[in-house]
């Protein structure tokens, strides 16, 4: 599977829009176009294989299901994961002749994507550093009272950072990635140690994505109960995700009712207290 210059350029454009700090904005850029599941759909449409794109995106989404960037520290870069990793993973799947629906296909895609995403972190730091240039222009303009310049500093000049740090890397890596993947295939046969390791890593990595999320919501042992309740619903009882969500919503509803009932008694109690004091 080849990626043409035009296709690679389109992928580069989406890389500019989707990154953190992207030019599609936080909500629609980073948190929509940058999510691997959505990116899978976009990349699939660009490369002419929607189904494979979405399946690769879904596999990779799991690793980054809770990609939080507290205070601007990142552990992976979405533009690299989504618009370099996903297209190259699709190329690799085609090169090795694997089905994206099978578990080995999923593992290969995940392994490839995460590798690229981790390497891509450097793009984030380059973009953020380069933006300091534009901000320098901005501080000068504010000194002089030329406020209109703020709009250009905030929304126009960062395009230069992105052409250098998002567009060009995605363009080149996607265009030259396909021959590279073919070369890798020549030297690394699928039953060799290296490929077996890549596949195994691919099957283990989503656990990190889920664990990043658990780190935020599970502070003590009992916090794991809802997690394992959901896990059991799917693993042992075979419920799909929509059904599991409905059941979860019911529990959340009960919890909310109990909480608000407690609040109501607290306020009611408070009111009686003051009444008594007034009586005295």
């Amino acid at each position: 599977m080849e990626i043409s210059w035009l296709q690679a350029a389109l992928l580069g454009l989406f890389a500019c829009l989707s990154s953190m700090p992207g030019l599609g904005g936080t909500t629609f850029g980073n948190y929509t176009l940058g999510r691997p599941l959505v990116a899978g759909m976009v990349v699939g449409a660009i490369l002419g294989d929607l189904r494979t794109g979405i399946m690769v995106g879904a596999a990779m989404q799991l690793v980054y299901i809770a990609l939080v960037t507290p205070g601007g520290t990142v552990s992976a870069d979405v533009r690299a994961v989504s618009y370099i990793g996903i297209p190259l993973a699709m190329v690799a799947l085609k090169a090795y002749g694997l089905d994206p629906a099978a578990s080995d296909g999923v593992s290969l895609a995940t392994g490839f994507g995460v590798l690229v995403g981790t390497v891509g972190t450097v793009l984030f730091y380059l973009t953020a550093t380069m933006n300091l240039l534009w901000q320098g222009i901005g501080w000068n303009a504010i000194e002089k009272g030329n406020y209109k310049q703020i709009y250009r500093v905030n929304m126009l000049y960062p395009w230069v950072s992105h052409i250098l740090c998002s567009f060009i890397p995605a363009l080149i890596m996607c265009r030259l990635g396909a021959p590279a993947v073919d070369a890798i295939k020549m030297y690394l046969p699928m039953d060799g140690l290296a490929m077996k390791t890549i596949f195994t890593v691919g099957s283990l990595l989503p656990a990190v994505g889920v664990a990043i999320l658990l780190k935020q919501i599970c502070l003590k042992a009992t916090d794991f109960i809802p997690f394992f309740f959901g896990f059991t619903l799917a693993a042992s009882m075979g419920l799909n995700l929509v059904s599991a969500t409905v059941i979860a919503a019911m529990f959340a509803f009960i919890k909310y009712e109990i909480k608000t009932a407690k609040l109501a008694t607290k306020f009611a109690g408070g009111a009686t207290d003051t009444d008594e004091e007034e009586d005295i």
Binding site: L62, V106, A207, D223, F227, G230, T245
Partner: peptide, 22 residues
């Protein structure tokens, strides 16, 4: 706090449906 319960349960189900360590 109620929404967080949904979050934890859905993530549990996601982990069981999509991660396959064997």
């Amino acid at each position: 706090e109620s929404i967080q319960i949904v979050g934890a349960m859905v993530i549990g189900a996601v982990a069981a449906s999509w991660i396959n360590v064997s």
